[in-house]
């Protein structure tokens, strides 16, 4: 597929109504995932909006090639995470060429009255490397090691080992944060 074709697709993606409806149904069944991924990979609301839009666009463009025999969630996570990691890395390079983020830059945007434990969890996730972050997000969504391995392209035993390390680190850091909050 060349650049011109892709441009046309982005201008008239709704030409096939049935395909759009099918896409809409699949996305409805996995509602909230793109929002959470965008929150995890983009530090500001503007970047979050751009990232989520990029993910949706890539999902929609790839949808005609989606093999119905395979799990939609695996396909969707692969695309969404690949886009999120790429955009995040590109932003990090661009950021290196501009000015540093000011301290206190917003971490994530969610509903009002966010649970402090969830806030601490989000902060922990944002401190992880992009690939470890993907692993944790999939785990938090409740996916098993085999599916996580299939999305990421590593072995299930590797997933298990990494998760056990990250969970240990998570426990330590979140408990420390909880104690600090309690003490202040």
């Amino acid at each position: 597929m060349n650049a011109d074709t892709r441009e046309l697709e982005s201008v008239e993606p709704l030409a096939d109504e049935a395909s759009y409806r099918a896409f809409e149904e699949h996305m409805a069944a996995h509602r909230g995932i793109v929002f959470k991924l965008a929150n995890a990979y983009a530090p500001t609301s503007e970047e979050r909006e751009d990232l989520a839009q990029e993910i949706y666009l890539q999902l929609w463009r790839s949808f005609p090639r989606y093999d119905r025999e395979r799990r939609f969630s695996t396909w969707m996570y692969r695309i969404a995470l690949n886009v999120a990691i790429s955009v995040s890395r590109r932003a990090a390079t661009r950021f290196r060429h501009t000015v540093p983020l000011a301290p206190g830059t917003e971490v994530a945007e969610t509903d009002d009255d966010l649970d402090p434990r969830l806030e601490a969890l989000q902060a922990f996730i944002q401190r992880l490397g992009e690939l470890d972050r993907a692993l944790v997000l999939l785990h938090l969504e409740g996916h098993g090691n085999r599916e996580i391995a299939s999305v990421l392209g590593i072995t299930a035993s590797n997933v298990s080992t990494k998760l056990s390390r990250i969970r240990g680190r998570m426990r330590t850091e979140l408990t420390a944060a909880e104690q600090y909050e309690g003490g202040t």
């Binding site: 929002f35 945007e109 969610t110 969890l121």
Partner: peptide, 15 residues
């Protein structure tokens, strides 16, 4: 507990 909280993240705003 964290997993349950995570699943509810976003809610209506996310949708």
């Amino acid at each position: 507990v964290l997993q349950d909280l995570w699943r509810d993240l976003g809610g209506k705003a996310g949708a």
